[in-house]
């Protein structure tokens, strides 16, 4: 309407262009006003500390002093000393195992809620967040009470005449259980959000055409919801890779992770430069994890096409 009126009013092309550019400028200004604070926060709270960490990683610490002597020693130590490789491999193995177990457990939960949740779907999804009603320390403490040498599980086993199971507490397995407990809601929620938009009638079509349920799942449900799985994997894998607290409280003496070692560099030993190099390394490892997930998911088939125009 506006465009027609202006044309009838006899405005030329240059005036039109002026109005358009004025509108565009106004739109840009509004966008800048809306997005600016968030962008500024990201720059200040995320990028600058990250930059500082990168810079420190090329410096040197000695007796709690940080010296700006540019060198690669921290990376040489990090990659050359077996201890740090072991910490990283432990973290990697733990993150991969926990992500896999979360995936196996979360899929049926999310599938059940999406398909059979009916009008309780939202409530059931919100219940997934129930563990977050309390803090992480409290949840870990609760696990200690449950799995510990004198915890509920071992006491019940003792009542049944079975000796206490030592592996349940202060072992890497215990740390893995703790991480699973902490992160499975993330995985389930991500998969559920993907399944919420999934057309279950496609499975009926597959069934009519003779596909067995397992084949229908493998060829339809799984690939079309791969984006939810991918997001879930990233949400679980990356925090697990960097996790320290769970291993510290549940893992015992053989579960020291790269995250625990990193925390120690900053908290106790004051070897900030080495800790910074660990931080950079962990950041790059997380980035690599995301890229691997990204490459293994066929976004077009997963239905994630709009935003990328793929």
């Amino acid at each position: 309407m506006a465009r027609g009126s202006v044309s009838k009013g006899g405005l030329g092309t240059s005036a039109m262009t002026g109005i358009r550019s004025s509108l565009a400028r106004r739109g840009q200004f509004r966008f800048a006003c809306l997005a600016g604070p968030g962008a500024l926060f990201i720059v200040v709270a995320l990028l600058l500390p990250l930059l500082a960490i990168v810079v420190f990683s090329f410096w040197r610490t000695e007796s709690y002093e940080l010296y700006a002597d540019w060198n690669l020693d921290n990376y040489r130590v990090l990659l050359g000393e077996p201890a740090y490789r072991i910490f990283f491999l432990r973290s990697l193995a733990m993150a991969a195992a926990v992500s896999f177990v979360c995936l196996v457990f979360a899929w049926p939960i999310a599938y059940f809620i999406a398909k059979h949740g009916g009008r309780y779907r939202l409530l059931l999804v919100l219940l997934l967040a129930a563990p977050f009603f309390t803090g992480v320390i409290l949840r870990i403490t609760a696990l200690q009470g449950l799995l510990g040498p004198i915890g509920l599980v071992n006491m019940a086993l003792a009542e049944l005449g079975i000796g206490p199971v030592g592996m349940l507490m202060y072992t890497p397995l215990a740390a893995g259980l703790g991480l699973f407990y902490l992160f499975v809601p993330f995985m389930a929620t991500a998969i559920y959000l993907s399944l919420a938009n999934f057309n279950f009638e496609l499975l009926e079509v597959a069934k009519i055409n003779g596909a067995r349920p397992w084949r229908a799942f493998v060829e339809i449900t799984w690939p079309l919801n791969a984006i939810g799985t991918a997001i879930g994997l990233v949400l679980v894998f990356i925090p697990c890779l960097a996790s320290a607290l769970t291993q510290r409280f549940l893992g015992g003496p053989n579960a020291t992770s790269l995250g625990m070692s990193l925390a120690q560099q900053f908290g106790e030993t004051g070897t900030w430069a080495l800790g910074s190099a660990m931080g950079v390394f962990l950041f790059l490892a997380s980035l690599a994890g995301i890229l691997v997930v990204r490459r293994t998911i066929d976004l077009k088939r997963a239905g994630f096409t709009g935003a990328l125009g793929a």
Binding site: S63, Y64, E81, Y84, F87, T256, Q264
Partner: peptide, 18 residues
């Protein structure tokens, strides 16, 4: 006291923990 060399002690502790 303060460890004579926090860097050296850190390396030892990491070796023990690993």
């Amino acid at each position: 006291d303060q460890p004579s060399s926090p860097e050296k002690w850190e390396r030892i502790w990491s070796d023990v923990e690993a």
